[in-house]
């Protein structure tokens, strides 16, 4: 008690005022470096990309580009490369369906059925992610190789013709996409399924729900946040991907990413590359927001 008797007595209002103003300023100081970084190196570049997409398509990197508000770049780019757009969305949509069919049981099993093996299974999902994804994608080249065991087996059972291949086909690209982004679907889904109280399923079955109905009416709605997050985390990078098409496919399987990559790094056609980038982003954003709106309303129902 004696130590406390010396607490200053006059530190009422005058001391409190500066404290308050300092704490009002503090959040802005904390936010400033990070927000500035994101503004300068994320938002500003997007503006620059928008500008570049309207440059005179006749310019070049060496002669310089003139800003001519060339909105024609967009229809021109779309006209030239619409099959690649279609392919990008088709491949990633098929991959998404496959990933859902594989990822939901996996996430559910880890969250609800694994018991004491839960951590082990989780590590089995996460740890491979630390190996470079390029190296892992190249491994599929070995697995799907014409001389490999898998192709041999499929040829023997006549699922593939004697000259049939897996590598350098749309199948290989979709398989690669599914593989590469599956963990991004599984982990958020796992996180929301783990929070699912298994007694709810017992209650559902007590109230005359078949396992299928219980899944449909209890599990699925409650895992919706994870499902939405996982779907987006899968779909966005898969649509913009060009690694799998490049490594596991041929130019016949090239997606829009391959075109953008070559526009910027090979053909050095910045206006076209920028226009294609923006079209890709616009398409993805449209799908994402449309999906979020729909998923959102369904969640309410």
């Amino acid at each position: 008690m004696t130590a406390l008797a010396h607490v200053p007595t006059s530190a009422g209002e005058p001391a409190a005022a500066p404290r308050r103003s300092r704490s009002r300023l503090l959040p802005y100081l904390l936010l400033l470096p990070g927000a500035a970084w994101l503004l300068i190196f994320f938002a500003l570049p997007l503006l620059q990309l928008a500008a570049a997409s309207l440059y005179d398509p006749g310019g070049s990197l060496s002669t310089g580009y003139a800003m001519t508000w060339a909105f024609d770049n967009y229809p021109a780019a779309l006209q030239a490369y619409w099959p690649h757009f279609v392919r990008s969305f088709a491949y990633s949509a098929i991959a998404l369906v496959l990933a859902l069919l594989m990822g939901y049981p996996l996430a559910y099993a880890i969250a609800q059925k694994a018991g004491r093996w839960k951590n082990l299974l989780l590590v089995a999902v996460v740890a491979p992610q630390f190996t470079s994804f390029l190296v892992r994608t190249l491994a599929w080249k070995t697995i799907l190789s014409d001389n490999g065991a898998l192709v041999g087996l499929l040829r023997d059972v006549h699922l593939l013709g004697p000259d049939g291949r897996l590598l350098a086909t749309p199948f290989a690209v979709v398989l690669g996409l599914t593989y590469n982004f599956l963990p991004f679907l599984v982990l958020p889904l796992y996180a929301s399924l783990e929070r699912l109280d298994s007694r709810l399923l017992e209650a559902a079955s007590d109230l005359y729900a078949s396992p299928l109905r219980a899944f449909q009416k209890v599990t699925l709605p409650l895992s919706m946040p994870g499902l939405i997050a996982g779907t987006l985390l899968f779909f966005i990078p898969a649509t913009g991907d060009y690694i799998n098409a490049e490594l596991l496919g041929t130019p016949n399987e090239y997606m829009i990413g391959n075109v953008i990559d070559s526009a910027f790094l090979v053909r050095l056609d910045y206006p076209q590359g920028a226009a294609l980038s923006f079209l890709l982003m616009a398409a993805i954003l449209a799908i994402v927001f449309g999906y979020l709106r729909k998923a959102g309303t369904e969640e309410v129902l």
Binding site: A5, V7, P8, A11, G12, A15
Partner: peptide, 24 residues
Amino acid sequence: EEPTSGQVLLGDRDIAGLRPYKRP
């Protein structure tokens, strides 16, 4: 919590403006 108005007196001392770690 800071009072909107009023006093917290310990003996004759108003401690309403003191930080928590300055209060006995």
